[in-house]
Amino acid sequence: MIYFDNSATTLPYPEVIKTYEEVATKIFGNPSSLHQLGSQSSRILQASRQQIAELLGKRTDEVFFTSGGTEGDNWVIKGLAFEKQRYGKHIIVSDIEHPAVKESAKWLQTQGFEVDFAPVDKKGFVKVDVLEELLRPDTILVSIMAVNNEIGSVQPIKAISKLLADKASISFHVDAVQAIGKIATDAYLTDRVDFATFSGHKFHSVRGVGFIYKKIGKKISPLLNGGGQELGFRSTTENVAGIAATAKALRIVLDKAKIGQKKLSAMKKVLFDSLSHYDDAILFSELAHFAPNILTFGIKGVRGEVLVHAFEEHDIYISTTSSCSSKAGKPAGTLISMGIPSRLAQTAVRISLDEDNDMSQVEQFLTIFKQIYEKTKKVR
């Protein structure tokens, strides 16, 4: 099997599974309980929080656990909106955000908030000059993803941070779900970023665990009310085993990051250069200023889902851009925002690599691609 769908989810590291099993079976107490089992669980919880904070260069009390990226994005977008609405009701998100951000913003429109969607250029990068023009005295939030999940374009977070440097009344949120281990941490977690969202299963942890970074002193409405966990911001019994596993996964992936990024870039370049030689192949991703692990392409006249299943017959797994909306059969929203015609956007499929992939798998993929390309000649 060749698994090239790592932006959808990753295989948990063996060490991560071991950590999960040990905590789940040996330290199973509720961390809110007063007895010894609860105290043990609470210590694991806080040690995991501290490890994550240190790995990101942040404070322990700036890390809050969630169930994943979608919950984190919903919490930040909606929680900030309602917390700051007395100061303004204008929000800006990019036009290529993940549905967890974009749909949250659209829902806020039904609640009386105004939302502007910052456009992107033909390569999929937010137009910072247009974003600047959209800013208003009543703007309370700007949300821009670090790495686009559909084509891999790395967004200009540093430039946007500079733009917002003297605008303290505007909260800046970054969806960093696709960024961990793929680009340098300081490229998306700048000093100006107030909130950032992360999801464990994107970097070899178990599913159902994520966290947000909330800069100290920044206010946000609670996600869940109840027992007062997570300093009252998310009241629910913590998934301690999953949290410990996520801390372990983050340490491993960041330890591997520099070497892993070089390996990913080398594999992506071989794929990019090889696919470029086919007349009817369309490359939607590029090499420069794009994540090293994502390459989105298509074959003219062949729908993306057809390609996905064609590769699956050879035990090769890719996806039609965003896994969250792939079953809807709609063209990639990012490509449409880039001005790509719908008939071409519908051909898009995404390869998303991982450091566990290797060049032999890349060569096998290219061999099968050639076979599929020839078989689709009549359609093309």
Rank of each mutant, 00 (worst) to 15 (best):
I220L: 03
V362N: 08
V120G: 07
I77G: 04
L45Y: 12
G301N: 07
T10Y: 03
L353R: 11
G304S: 07
I44G: 03
G124Q: 06
G124A: 07
D356Q: 12
K182L: 11
I243Q: 05
Q261C: 03
D356I: 14
T320V: 13
A328H: 09
G200L: 11
T321E: 09
E62H: 06
I157V: 14
E15N: 05
G29K: 06
V270T: 13
T10K: 15
E83C: 15
L231S: 15
K269F: 01
F365I: 05
K219S: 14
P119F: 02
D73P: 03
A257S: 15
E150H: 05
R49V: 05
N239L: 12
M145H: 13
V308K: 11
N148W: 13
S169M: 07
E62K: 13
F311Q: 03
Q85T: 00
E363I: 14
T347I: 01
Q178P: 00
S42K: 12
E103P: 00
Y20R: 07
A196G: 02
V349I: 13
D116H: 10
I336G: 12
T236C: 11
H201S: 10
E114V: 04
A244C: 11
E238A: 14
R343M: 08
I52Y: 10
G226H: 10
G69F: 05
R234V: 04
